[in-house]
Simulated scan of single mutants.
Amino acid sequence: MSELPTDEEAAARAAAAFTGRFGAAPEGVWAAPGRVNVIGEHTDYNGGHVLPVALPHTTRAAVARRDDGRLVLVSAQHPGADADVAVAELEPGTPGGWAGYPAGVVHQLREAVPGGLSLLVDGDVPAGAGLSSSAALECAVAVALRDLLDLDLGPDELVDVARRAENDFVGAPTGILDQSASVLCTAGHALHLDTRDRGSEQVPLDLEAAGLALLVVDSGTTHSHADSGYGDRRRECEEAARRLGVGLLCEVTGVDALAPLDDGTERGALLLRRARHVVTEDARVEEVVGLLRAGGDPREVGAVLTAGHASLRDDFEVSVPELDAIVETALAAGAHGARMVGGGFGGSAVALVDAAAVDDVAAAVAGRAGAPRSYVVVPSAGARRLS
């Protein structure tokens, strides 16, 4: 569990790298965090509720305007994989790879950037770990362009710009959870977001005061929303909603209302499982929020997390053996609860543990589950300018 740079250190590092690459200082450095979802997985594109916190890990964007119409993208994490394309020639899928995410944001706002941009990104949000590294990159660039180009974009509009970059330019069919968390989260709080009407509240989450810690464990198995089974799950949810005669699964009130899906066919049984996860997961978000609002013992959240993992594993079928092993090992080592996080098919798990037991639980999952990295997560601030 390595130390993260301060905002000042991160800004200086990104600015120095930019100057070394482009021969002049950037006009500013902006940052946006990754996120971990306390509870509420695969509910966002179904119109349900989510409860993320922002990570202390961020992606930084050092940016300056150009006058030649080019977009030049450089990443400290992908040396030699630069992209250089005319802003006017940007189109979905080109450039690809890591550069597609910032390019997608520029594509969304291209009418405001006719002169071009130089952009260097640097960061410490683990990629492919289910912690929204792509959203952190998109939101850092979106906030940078808003400020640099003096664009009239509110928080929801920034979220939409970043989400469309991922959906329409990169081709990953995500909901608004990741980008909303990266833009809207505040330090010391979890973000309770209704993804249907976009109403939100900041729910205090002071685990340290309760002697607890949120431990994120990277399975080492990477994933990508663009080419995993994520899109299949979204289509299955849409089909279940159609069969039930609703626009979104969030409109279903209770598991009993899912009975029409159980038509005796294999497809019907599958759709029932998918919809059951969404309906019960939405209820789990409300249960956790209610407990935190009432000032209850946060340890009680643990059982809800573990139930969420069972649902993701058995009904939604997005877990993998590596994630199951982390959850089982963390629980055996004394965690109050644990579950996989993110879209699934790899990525990370989260465990609610006593602060005094963090090292023991981390050592247990490293030794028995082979998990290579773990992080203690403190609910942190959303996207912001650093310099």
Rank of each mutant, 00 (worst) to 15 (best):
D194V: 07
L248W: 11
G188D: 02
R274H: 02
T174I: 15
V365R: 00
Q108A: 15
H192T: 03
R299A: 05
P79I: 08
A190F: 08
E286Q: 14
D156I: 14
L271N: 08
Q202A: 10
G115N: 12
G115P: 06
L153K: 01
A83M: 09
E138S: 05
A330W: 00
P33L: 10
A81N: 11
E317L: 14
G154E: 12
I326S: 07
P298E: 07
G69M: 05
D262E: 15
C237W: 09
T59Q: 15
V161K: 07
A99Q: 03
G188F: 02
T222Y: 00
A61L: 12
D197C: 07
V341M: 15
L151I: 04
E138L: 11
R66T: 12
G23Y: 00
D206T: 00
E208H: 12
T59M: 15
G96I: 08
L193P: 01
A83R: 13
P321E: 06
D44Q: 14
V50F: 13
G28S: 02
Y230W: 12
R110Y: 14
G343K: 08
D354P: 05
D360T: 14
E328L: 08
R233G: 04
S118T: 11
A349W: 02
D197E: 09
D194S: 11
G344N: 04
R313T: 10
G231W: 09
A363V: 03
D360Q: 10
E300N: 10
S2L: 06
G220P: 09
S132M: 06
V279Y: 08
A12S: 11
P114K: 05
A10E: 07
T253I: 13
